[in-house]
């Protein structure tokens, strides 16, 4: 299928892109990797009158690691997956990204595009929640930083304003006593998450002092699991403690059923994958 007609612009700076977004308003859509937007346009589920291709904006691409980690919105899955520096300071990102789709999807798809699209089965959404990442945006009124926990508002909806661009994602480097993991049950054809779980833990004196768990794929919105996190705090991270905490994962979130997996099945898998993610994150934190 062929997309419906649109006008095409390829700005070379963030300011120029925002100018175009402001000028064309609701008619315009940003094109990043195109691996969510173009399939939707081919099926005519989306029919923007104006397409603003941001791929020529070099400043949006690449990973910078100094005091913290700054990943440009246009950085592809491929770059993140194979980034040697990232493997050392935040291995959960390459780990999660390597599980996305297939090589060709990872060659094109971008971190900023996935977060802006907020597909309920996307992988990176859960990871940025578990890492407590900050999402940098740029719009007509200047720059903003939005916490990942405030970013995903509803199914396919985010806190992003219509004329705003995501410019980067910022997360902190994981050090001694910290560990994170992402595990997923992939759909066999698309590899999208039927259920995915990301976990982050920090150990202080052998006890869990910080814990964040996020679940994707199971419901309309990627969701932090507050009850599970609370149950882990202060525990020694033993298998019993993890099993107990995982039991309440998903209890208070909306869970959807579809042709791929029923609601009950997803509810059960949320617990299983939460347990696996926590177990691996704790093992990594122990070093």
């Amino acid at each position: 299928m062929i997309p419906s007609i649109f006008a095409y612009f390829a700005p070379t700076s963030v300011a120029e892109a925002i100018g175009l977004l402001t000028q064309y308003g609701d008619e315009a859509k940003v094109l990043a990797g195109g691996h969510s937007l173009l399939p939707a346009m081919k099926l005519r589920l989306a029919a923007p009158g104006v397409l603003i291709d941001i791929n020529k904006i070099a400043e949006l691409r690449g990973v910078v690691i100094n005091g913290q980690i700054n990943i440009g919105a246009l950085t592809t899955w491929h770059t993140i997956e194979h980034h040697v520096g990232l493997k050392g300071v935040c291995g959960v990102l390459p780990e999660a990204v390597a599980q996305i789709g297939d090589i060709q999807v990872r060659n094109r798809g971008t971190l900023g595009g996935a977060l802006a699209h907020a597909d309920p089965s996307a992988d990176a959404t859960a990871v940025v929640l578990a890492l407590d990442a900050q999402i940098r945006t740029h719009g007509p009124n200047g720059e903003r930083t939005i916490a990942a926990s405030d970013f995903f508002t509803d199914m396919l909806s985010t806190a992003l304003e219509p004329s705003e661009l995501i410019t980067a994602v910022i997360c902190h480097k994981l050090g001694a006593g910290e560990g994170a993991a992402y595990v997923k049950f992939p759909h066999p054809a698309s590899r999208y998450a039927i259920v995915g779980a990301a976990a982050y833990v920090k150990l202080s004196d052998g006890k869990i002092s910080t814990c964040r768990v996020a679940v994707t794929g199971a419901g309309p919105v990627p969701t932090r699991q507050g009850d599970t996190e609370q149950a882990m705090l202060g525990s020694d991270g033993s298998a019993e403690a993890v099993a107990k905490a995982a039991k309440v994962s998903g209890a208070t979130m909306d869970i959807l059923g579809d042709i791929h997996a029923s609601e009950d099945y997803r509810r059960a898998m949320v617990k299983v994958y939460t347990k696996r993610a926590l177990t691996t994150a704790i093992a990594r934190a122990r070093g």
Binding site: Y8, A10, L31, G34, H35, L38, P39, K42, D53, N55, H78, I103, Q104, V105, N107, R108
Partner: peptide, 18 residues
């Protein structure tokens, strides 16, 4: 699948202008 600048991509999910 074709290669653009040596990288494999799905040409059904890439615009010719790109």
């Amino acid at each position: 699948v074709v290669h653009i600048n040596g990288v494999s991509v799905k040409s059904c999910t890439t615009l010719a202008v790109q």
